[in-house]
């Protein structure tokens, strides 16, 4: 790189040191949460046990007892998985149609889809509560799955569209010659070809579903309540439960943070709608 030409001995050492310090600083709150999760509730608030303490697994072993963790986790898994599957099920054909059989309206349709993503959720809070309650859908898995799907559908269609656009049309056309019908084209040619793109879209969609914190909190009470709802309900400031609260928080975000490491690139695409490459 160009700057190397000017590198002095000082910056050769100072630069990496600074970069590492910034990285560690940003990660520190997460590290602190994980560390606290191995302390007892009593130790967690004592200055003398900041870094040296007797680690315990009790907070993790008692998650069910303390918070009914697995019920919420199960709801998070069910809603996020089914929402991701449903979104792909609707999104793949749509993106296929737009990428391989575009019409003059395709661009406008895509832009309109993205614009739905930009509406503030709170604006429709009451109508959503009213509708779901009168349809008997309030606090059901079905409702949360549908809402998560619809929130993420624009991003999923958009991401799939950009992946599909890269596939040469000829390959798809060749399928037509062999007498494969449209659905066969998608199932047998497109999906295997674009597998990587579909997988990373699914991963990102899953992460967004898991972290959603408006509708999952406002449209549930107990039956379909997800981990966001669980944590939100335990915001109490007493500070007596730092240990167990850290454990349940770590369990709630740990897997997702790790998954996130694997889709940094897709994140840029998915969140900027391709405007930054």
């Amino acid at each position: 790189m160009a700057i190397v030409a000017q590198t002095t001995k000082f910056s050769k050492i100072a630069w990496p040191v600074l970069a590492w310090m910034v990285g560690l600083l940003f990660f520190f709150p997460i590290f602190w949460m994980v560390l606290t999760s191995f302390k007892t509730d009593a130790d967690a608030v004592k200055p003398e046990y900041l870094f040296w303490f007797k680690p315990t697994l009790d907070n993790y072993l008692n998650m069910t007892e303390n918070y009914d963790y697995w019920r919420f986790a199960r709801n998070s898994v069910i809603t996020s998985v089914f929402a991701t599957v449903f979104t792909l099920f609707v999104g793949i054909p749509a993106a296929y149609a737009m990428a391989f059989n575009p019409s003059r309206a395709t661009k406008d349709v895509l832009m309109w889809m993205l614009s739905t993503k930009m509406l503030p959720a709170a604006a429709v809070l009451y109508p959503m509560t009213f509708l779901t309650k009168s349809l008997g859908l309030f606090d059901t898995h079905f409702l949360i799955i549908m809402v998560l799907s619809l929130i993420n559908l624009p991003i999923v269609v958009w991401m799939l569209f950009t992946y599909f656009k890269e596939i040469p049309k000829d390959i798809i056309e060749a399928g037509k010659m062999d007498g494969v019908d449209t659905l066969g084209e998608i199932k047998e040619i497109l999906v295997p070809l674009a597998w990587g793109g579909i997988a990373s879209t699914a991963l990102l969609c899953f992460i967004f579903c898991w972290n959603e914190a408006y509708w999952t909190v406002r449209l549930t009470t107990t039956e379909a309540a997800t981990l966001s709802k669980l944590i939100e309900g335990n915001r109490a400031p007493e500070g007596l439960f730092f240990g167990r609260l850290s454990a349940v928080s770590t369990a709630a975000v740990g897997p997702i943070v790790v998954l996130g490491w694997f889709c940094q690139k897709q994140l840029v695409q998915g969140l900027t709608f391709g405007a930054v490459k």
């Binding site: 990285g23 966001s228 928080s249």
Partner: peptide, 30 residues
Amino acid sequence: FPGRGFVRVLLISPFFVMPAVNAVLWINMI
């Protein structure tokens, strides 16, 4: 620089923490 990939992972991690946990973690423990 040495360990650049790792530093990147450290830096990106906060983004994947769910908002509810982010808030509870900061307002209470920090």
